[in-house]
Amino acid sequence: MASPSRTPKLDLSISGALVALSVFVLWGTKEIPPPFFDPIGSAAFPKYTAYIIIALSLAIALRASLALRKPNSPRKKSFREEPLLAISVVITSALYVLSMQWELLSFRWATLVFIFLLSALLSKFEKRVMIFSAIIGIVFGFGGQYLFTEVFYMDLPQ
């Protein structure tokens, strides 16, 4: 079950971010009025949770810094990772959401463009995938709009 940290640098970064988040939560709890009918009130639970997160973050950071001191041979992966693709998935998804939030596109057109674009990116513009993804985009964009609004009675961005 137990093992030394295999991702010490990431652990340190996450611990730091979580301590900052906890401080932000503790600052937020100051706005909560004191309890008026029960002993602990609404601020207590987030406060306790934030304190526990700080304590655990420090323990994880300590463990990670101990692991950093030891020479660690990186494990070789059997495949090449594509961090740029992962980032592009997040960015494309965010643009897809924004296009509808700012009412630039309706669900059907935004979905069509999104499916085509992201499939093309992920397949590194492979011609066959692009053709199929265009078809899928049309079917999902227009068919999906009909299915979800008319059959499942859900509102989608118009």
Binding site: M100, I115, V129, S133, D155, L156
Partner: peptide, 24 residues
């Protein structure tokens, strides 16, 4: 091929999150 699946799954996510509350 996961190039087809990833965009469709996210589109489903959007429907699943937006549909019940109509909140982006």
């Amino acid at each position: 091929n996961r190039s087809y699946l990833i965009p469709i799954v996210f589109a489903f996510c959007l429907i699943g999150a937006y549909g019940p509350s109509n909140r982006m």
